[in-house]
Amino acid sequence: MTDQFEPVIIGFTCNWCSYRAADLAGTARIKYPPNVRLIRLMCSGRLDPTFVLKALSEGADGVLIAGCHPGECHYLEQNYKALRRHRLMQRTLAQFGIEPERVRLTWASAAEGAKFAEDITEMVEQVRKLGPLNWPANLPTKPVPVGMVAAEIPVLSEEVA
């Protein structure tokens, strides 16, 4: 192992598709880098943005969110809600000064072990390039001027609304 940066990524998966995709990657012995640690939720719609911020603030360098493909949600349409939240989160993260690429949303059906492994590999490489987030140590120590951000919140595009 060289001393290249090894990111730690928290992966949120849904019980029905993406967690099973990860299981399938295992059963099929598909290899991917060991940098991702998975958490099972019932649905990607369960993903509270707090979880993402918590993971980043506890030392994760990136967060991967994986749900069922659009139209295939076990709970009919809740992955769309994950999609909306992800879009909003991207904006919030940017305002925090965190590269939005650190939080990725992907779809993986229970049959897509290989695809999910590929997504993980890509994500690890992406975060590796971005470097350590080191958020806990970088939390602001100076007060943020009040009112600076509010005026700059961009208008949401239609796809988010």
Binding site: V8, I10, R37, I39, L41, D48, T50, F51, K54, A55, E58, G59, A60, N134, P136, A137, L139, P140, T141, P143, V144, V146
Partner: peptide
Amino acid sequence: VLAQIEGLLRDVAQPVTREPVTA
């Protein structure tokens, strides 16, 4: 879920030294 995140990241979590943020 929050507890699981903490557990999963215990090995990488850095000690945080923060100055209080005042408005």
